[in-house]
Write a protein that binds this DNA or RNA. Structure first.
Length: 208
DNA sequence: GACCAGGCACATC
DNA sequence: GATGTGCATGGT
């Protein structure tokens, strides 16, 4: 909470996830895997222009065609398959309805998502928090790096261990989790790179 | 021109 | 379980 307040003071509210609709969040969550957001934006724009930013529509498009459109987002063949596979699940199980999906229990949803092709813990939790508004804390490479540099856990600790660190020390609040993770990414993007720029970091005096 | 990006699956030991 | 590797673009 200390860290959160410090970051919030430094950067202010982040208004995340940068997407218009929950469905767009889901596309973004898959496209953003190990990829910079600028590249993801280009892929999303291309999908929009092709009228294919829709899980219903991408089901009936050739995988190669979809791959061509999302090329800027790296690993285009893998991600094209992942998107189509997700679309099939989303249609068959929830008729592509966010509302219907939201009614489902969080633990069950997480389990379902983790069973899908190329949906790992971070992608699943991003969908749960940012598209479905479930109180799940998202861990990414920036979060791990920042917390390990401040002595909380080491990079070798698992996704779940990092997640517990946050969820056991914070109230289960969607808005807080949303804002906190967004702030961590903001700091990571700007300063907490593999080669850190610690002098300008608002957390430079914080130690565990 | 190196380095990095909002991971994940799969092979191998 | 731990560790290594492929995926294969574009910005800084």
């Amino acid at each position: 909470m200390h860290i959160y307040k410090q970051l919030f003071r430094a950067f202010g509210p982040q208004h995340w996830w940068p997407a218009k609709t929950p469905e767009e969040v889901m596309f973004g969550a898959i496209l953003a895997q190990n990829t910079s957001w600028k590249n993801v934006e280009q892929a999303i724009l291309a999908l929009k222009e092709a009228g294919l930013l829709s899980f219903r529509r991408i089901m009936s498009v050739a995988t190669e065609e979809l791959a061509r459109l999302i090329r800027p987002a790296r690993f285009m063949n893998l991600k094209a398959k992942a998107l189509q596979n997700f679309a099939t699940y989303f249609y068959q199980r929830y008729r592509c309805s966010i509302t219907r999906m939201r009614l489902q229990q969080t633990e069950l949803l997480r389990h379902e998502l983790l069973g899908l092709y190329r949906i790992g813990p971070e992608t699943a939790d991003s969908i749960l928090l940012y598209a479905l508004e479930k109180p799940v804390f998202v861990i990414d490479v920036y979060t791990k790096r920042i917390m390990s540099r401040h002595g909380y856990l080491s990079m070798a600790h698992s996704y779940e261990e990092f997640q517990s660190l946050f969820m056991q020390n914070l109230p289960a609040d969607v808005h807080l989790y949303n804002e906190y993770h967004a702030l961590l990414v903001r700091l990571g993007n700007q300063l907490c790179k593999p080669r850190p720029l610690c002098e300008a970091c608002p957390l430079k005096d914080i130690q565990r």
